[in-house]
């Protein structure tokens, strides 16, 4: 697929989108807490890929490249948007049960999800980004450092702080 993309084959782009779309949207949504803005970020990435296809040659791992691009796009969106969705740790709202799971397990699952999202939202963006790229996208610290153009020590520092805060926020709730 990457070879076809590098040769300018636009059909390759469709295949790339189909294969990675859910993962990319999931990462963007976890970073931005808003699915609409998250999908805008993913759209930005593909728009740029198309615009630069003639000059762009992807030489690294395609998945890592796309995750990096989405993370960068999400960061830009986060910084430019005026308001960021805020979730309160004290929010008592429990979402309606929509899944096919038995009612009780679905409720627990949705509650888990909401608590996790609230806890992630409480992290500074840079820490959240590192934690998600590490645990959700399985990227190595070295890759994350290269993506963000910072030292690996800084990445690991942000990861450590982020993880500690996440644990303390979720302690007793989910862990």
């Amino acid at each position: 697929m990457m070879i076809r993309f590098n040769r300018g084959d636009t059909h390759a782009l469709r295949d790339i989108y189909t294969l990675y779309k859910n993962e990319l949207v999931s990462l963007a949504r976890a970073l931005l807490h808003d699915k609409t803005i998250a999908e805008d970020a993913v759209h930005d990435v593909f728009a740029k890929l198309i615009a630069k296809q003639e000059t762009l040659k992807i030489t690294s791992n395609l998945r890592s490249y796309l995750l990096t691009a989405v993370a960068n796009a999400a960061r830009r969106r986060y910084r430019s948007d005026k308001g960021h969705p805020e979730l309160s740790l004290d929010a008592a709202n429990v979402p309606e049960i929509e899944s096919n799971n038995p009612p009780q397990s679905a409720a627990i699952s949705d509650e888990q999800k909401q608590l996790l999202e609230i806890a992630l939202a409480a992290l500074p963006y840079e820490q959240r980004e590192v934690v998600l790229l590490r645990h959700f996208s399985d990227l190595k610290f070295k890759t994350i450092a290269s993506m963000q153009n910072i030292s690996i020590n800084t990445v690991m520092g942000r990861y450590r702080y982020g993880l500690d805060k996440l644990r303390s926020l979720l302690n007793g709730e989910l862990l």
């Binding site: 859910n22 949207v25 999931s26 949504r29 976890a30 699915k35 699952s109 888990q112 999800k113 996790l116 999202e117 934690v131 998600l132 645990h135 959700f136 979720l170 989910l174 862990l175």
Partner: peptide
């Protein structure tokens, strides 16, 4: 926790 709960 992250992998199971953040997919969309």
């Amino acid at each position: 926790l992250i992998k199971n709960n953040l997919k969309t």
